[in-house]
């Protein structure tokens, strides 16, 4: 178990060497759709980071104090998803009430996060790797930032690709996936820095 790895290292690793999107290929759906537009990408990435951080903390608490004591590990998947969905709903209501401006800018992305499997993925990984609470938060925050980094980079690349002579059959999702693969290859270069499972 990774009891010995410090939180900052986990944070760094989650952003670069174990990027949830480019190494584990989670959260691809909204990644492919939203990376067309840079502004939306920044907004969505921000929302994903915030939700990921909060839900990792929440799910750690739920796992430690409800699932394990009552022997409900087999329901982990379902419970985590329910907690994520409920949290996002609650967050939407709070933002709408507290800051209508923030709601119009960011709140529009929140429904997209409920269908983002990267959030669930991060929550499950932290259980498998047996992180402590602090490590979970670091992992969640790092995962979000890594996802954000990946989608913004992709949006930038797609912006550049607008005038490129892409073969007709590959236009759209085809070339995007190829580029994602190339990005993943380049991120593999980081893997030599830290070994994390």
């Amino acid at each position: 178990m990774d009891g010995g790895v410090s939180a900052p290292v986990i944070l760094f690793a989650a952003i670069f060497t174990n990027n949830i999107l480019l190494v584990n290929f989670l959260g691809m759906c909204s990644f492919l759709a939203i990376s067309k537009d840079l502004k939306s990408s920044i907004g969505l990435g921000l929302a994903v980071t915030f939700v990921m951080t909060c839900t990792t903390g929440l799910n750690y608490v739920v796992n430690t104090f409800i699932l394990i004591p009552y022997g409900l590990e087999q329901f982990r998947f379902i419970v985590f998803i329910i907690v994520i969905a409920a949290f996002v709903q609650l967050l939407e209501m709070i933002i709408e009430r507290v800051s209508p401006l923030l709601y119009v800018v960011l709140g529009v992305f929140l429904p997209l996060i409920t269908v983002n499997c990267a959030i669930l993925g991060v929550c499950l990984f932290m259980i498998i790797r047996g992180y402590s609470f602090l490590q979970c938060i670091a992992f969640g925050f790092g995962g979000g930032v890594g996802w954000w980094l990946a989608i913004v980079a992709m949006a930038g690349i797609r912006e550049r690709m607008k005038n490129a002579p892409v073969p007709k059959a590959l236009a759209g999702p085809g070339i995007t996936l190829i580029v994602a693969g190339l990005m993943a290859l380049s991120f593999m270069a980081f893997s030599g820095m830290i070994q994390m499972q």
Binding site: C29, L32, A33, K36, S40, V108, P111, L112, V115
Partner: peptide, 15 residues
């Protein structure tokens, strides 16, 4: 819930 699978940004969804 957003439309799944996700095809487009929320702004195009709104349009």
């Amino acid at each position: 819930m957003a439309r799944f699978p996700v095809f487009q940004s929320p702004f195009l969804d709104a349009a």
